[in-house]
Design a protein around this nucleic acid. Structure first.
Lengths: 199, 199
DNA sequence: CTCGTTTGACTAAGCGCTTGCTTACGACGT
DNA sequence: ACGTCGTAAGCAAGCGCTTAGTCAAACGAG
C-alpha cells in the first residue's frame, strides 16, 4: 500500500516503455523494432525493458489487447447511443473513424501486426475482433430488416464500413487537412451511403 | 544470344526466388522474413539469393515496383474502357477490387511494407502511388463536374474508393465465400454509392 | 531520532544465437 | 576449356534476453 496504485514509480516506467513501444512498432513494425530502440526511446538501458515486461512480444500483446478492447467498448457505446439502425450506424462510423484518426499510431499496430502475436495471444485478440465485427453486422442486419437500408450483401456492407475505418490508420497524417472530428463526420456519411440508407 | 530471354536457366531461378520472397514477405513481413526463409522456399541454398539478387531489400523493391506499375496500368486501362465518369469509376473499382483479391498476397506487400524500402526506392514507388490516386481523383472530379456524382469532398471520396480496394488485401481469404470477380462487382456498386452516383 | 537491513528500480556487461551477406570453390552444359 | 549456376562454410554485426550487481528510498528495532 504505497500511495495511489496508478502513479507509483514502477507503473510510470512501465507506461513510458509501453508508449515508446507504440511509437516504435507503429513506425518500423514489430520485427523492425529492437528492444534497444524501445529502451532508448524511453530513456533507459536495454535491460530496463525486462524489469517491467516479460518480453518484446508481451509489449505487443498489451498494446494490441488494450487497443482492441477500447475499440470494442467504443463501438458498443456508439450502438447504445442510437435508437434506429440509421442513427446507430452513423454513430458507430463517426466514433470509429475519429478514433482511428486520433489514434492512428496504435491503430497501425492493432490492425497490421497481428501476425507477430504469439498463438495464444492472437486467439484472444481475434475474439475481440469478432466482437467488433459482430456489433457492426447486427446494426447492418437490423437496418436491412426494417427496410431503412438497402444492402445486397450484409457481409460485404459490414466489411466495407469497417474497411473505411480501419484503412484510416494507413493513410491518415496529422499534418493533413482533416481533423479526427472531420473524418468522423465524413465516415458517418459514407457508411450511410454504403448501406444505401434512406436519406 | 542464348534462346528466348524469358526462359533462360538464370531467369527461371530469379523468378522462383522472387515468388518465394512474395509468399514470405506477405506472410511474415519484410523484417520478419530471413534470406534463409526465401532460399529454402525456393529450394536453394542461402547463398543462391545473392547469385540472382543484390540484396533482400532489392527483392522487396522489385515486388513493390512491379506491383505498383501493374496497378497503375490496370487503373488507366479501366478509365480508358469507359466513356462517362460513372462507367469509368465502376470499371476502375471493379478491376481494382478483383485485382486486389486475386493478388492479395503481393498486395499486402505493396501496401503495407513501404516503410522497409530504401529511401530512393521508396520515392520511386510513391510516385507510382500518386499516379494511381490521381487517376481515380480525376474520375471523381469529372463526375462531380457533370453532376453525375454528389461528392461533399473529392479527397475523401477518392480516398474512400481506394480504401475499399486496398483493404481487401488485409481481409481477403482464398477459402472465403467470394471469388475475386464477386468482389469486383461489389466494389463497383460500393464505389458508385460512395460518390453518390445517380442510379 | 539513529542506523543496519530490506526492497524495488535500474544498469554494465555479456551470452548464445541469428542475421544479411561474402568468399572460395565445385559441377555441369555447351 | 569456359562461363554460368550453384553451394559449403563462415564472418562481422546485431538480436532478444540474462546475470550480477549498484544505488536510493523505505522500514523497523533500539
Amino acid at each position: 500500500m504505497s500511495g495511489t496504485p496508478e502513479s507509483s514509480r514502477g507503473d510510470l516506467a512501465r507506461a513510458r516503455l509501453l508508449e515508446a513501444a507504440v511509437q516504435a512498432f507503429a513506425a518500423k513494425g514489430f520485427h523492425g523494432t529492437t528492444t534497444r530502440d524501445i529502451a532508448a526511446a524511453a530513456g533507459m538501458s536495454p535491460a530496463a525493458v525486462y524489469v517491467h515486461h516479460r518480453s518484446k512480444e508481451e509489449l505487443l500483446y498489451l498494446i494490441s489487447h488494450d487497443g482492441h478492447q477500447r475499440t470494442l467498448d467504443l463501438v458498443r457505446a456508439a450502438v447504445a447511443a442510437g435508437t434506429t439502425p440509421t442513427e446507430q450506424l452513423a454513430e458507430v462510423a463517426r466514433r470509429f473513424g475519429a478514433h482511428h484518426a486520433e489514434g492512428h499510431t496504435w491503430a497501425r499496430i492493432v490492425n497490421y501486426e497481428l501476425a507477430a502475436l504469439a498463438p495464444g495471444h492472437l486467439a484472444e485478440v481475434l475474439e475481440l475482433r469478432i466482437g467488433i465485427e459482430t456489433e457492426v453486422r447486427r446494426v447492418v442486419e437490423a437496418g436491412a430488416l426494417t427496410g431503412e437500408f438497402d444492402v445486397p450483401d450484409v457481409g460485404i456492407a459490414t466489411t466495407a464500413v469497417l474497411s473505411l475505418g480501419i484503412d484510416i490508420a494507413r493513410w491518415y497524417r496529422e499534418d493533413g487537412r482533416w481533423t479526427p472530428a472531420d473524418i468522423g463526420e465524413h465516415m458517418a456519411a459514407l457508411a450511410l451511403r454504403v448501406v444505401g440508407a434512406r436519406q
